[in-house]
């Protein structure tokens, strides 16, 4: 049986760990609140831009743009959003596993695809496996501004415009609720499916100067906004996942402390009993 001192040491260290996980849980909870708010603030922008894009793309007829047309796929781009830090349960591993499986399923050589990663965990994962990471960005703040990812979003869209990739998928954790996050795959480019929900019919616009030039400005902005939306969604999921992971860590620490305290008390009692036995034995020997 472990000595009293050993058990005491383990109890103290478990308590310290619990303090940390508890603090992280609370920090994540407040960050989750902010992240949810950010995601909410983004909604009016994304809805509006989607509405305009859809009405131009459908109403116009003669308007065309490379981003709207599917072309033969020689190279696929995968944009993967992970976090910079771990300790978030299955948050990173589930999205990485999904991407990894998809890539193995669809591609036989590294020539056929390229990766763009947001977040350190994702970058390291693919680098370690010698997979081509074309661009990466790390150190995104917990409350990302659009300006933070504008460059990587614009560069990614540029890859498509330059025909270095022929389609672009994005993988991220979609925030369903504080305890559920879902790995989501979304096709960003080419922009073929708009979920318009019957909104598009309402007005036919004048285009100033003309449709093509508007699409020229609008579509990259739209695609960037999709990427930003996914990032916000993923940030909310990250905080939610971390919160849940830390909560269960705190609970586990509680259980462990309970068990350890029990065996500490047993050991203490055993020691006392032994001492008494020894004293009684000693006294009996004297008589």
């Amino acid at each position: 049986m472990a000595s009293l001192r050993d058990i005491k040491g383990r109890i103290t260290s478990t308590k310290k760990t619990k303090q940390i996980t508890k603090a992280m849980e609370m920090v994540s909870a407040s960050k989750l609140n902010r992240a949810e708010q950010n995601a909410k603030q983004f909604v009016p922008y994304s809805e509006k831009i989607q509405e305009v894009v859809a009405s131009i793309a459908q109403g116009g007829g003669d308007a065309s743009h490379p981003m709207l047309e599917a072309r033969e796929v020689k190279k696929t781009g995968y944009l993967v959003i992970t976090s910079d830090r771990g300790l978030a349960g299955a948050f990173n591993s589930s999205v990485l596993r999904k991407v990894y499986q998809e890539i193995l399923k669809h591609h036989t050589s590294a020539e056929e695809y390229t990766l763009i990663t947001i977040g350190r965990i994702g970058r390291d994962f693919f680098r370690k496996r010698n997979m081509p990471v074309d661009m990466d960005i790390t150190g995104i703040s917990d409350q990302p501004d659009f300006a933070d990812i504008k460059d990587i979003a614009a560069d990614t869209i540029q890859l498509y415009t330059d025909e270095r990739i022929d389609q672009l998928y994005i993988y991220y954790n979609h925030y369903v609720s504080a305890i559920t996050q879902e790995v989501t795959e979304k096709k960003i480019l080419p922009l073929t499916d708009f979920n318009t929900e019957g909104k598009a019919s309402q007005s036919s616009y004048e285009y100033e100067p003309n449709q093509e030039e508007i699409l020229e400005v609008l579509l990259p902005q739209y695609a960037e906004s999709l990427i930003y939306g996914a990032l916000l969604d993923s940030k909310a999921s990250e905080h939610a996942a971390r919160m849940t992971a830390m909560k269960s860590a705190t609970d586990n620490a509680d259980d462990l402390i309970g068990d350890l305290t029990l065996s500490y008390n047993r050991a203490r009692q055993a020691a006392i009993t032994q001492e008494i036995t020894e004293i009684v034995g000693g006294a009996a020997a004297l008589e």
């Binding site: 305009v52 131009i56 007005s203 036919s204 616009y205 004048e206 285009y207 100033e208 100067p209 030039e213 508007i214 020229e216 400005v217 609008l218």
Partner: peptide, 17 residues
């Protein structure tokens, strides 16, 4: 992009960069 625009109420629906 095509120049200055002034918009008053009742303008025709329009999109411009």
């Amino acid at each position: 992009e095509s120049g200055e625009l002034g918009i008053l109420p009742g303008h025709i629906p329009m999109v411009a960069p």
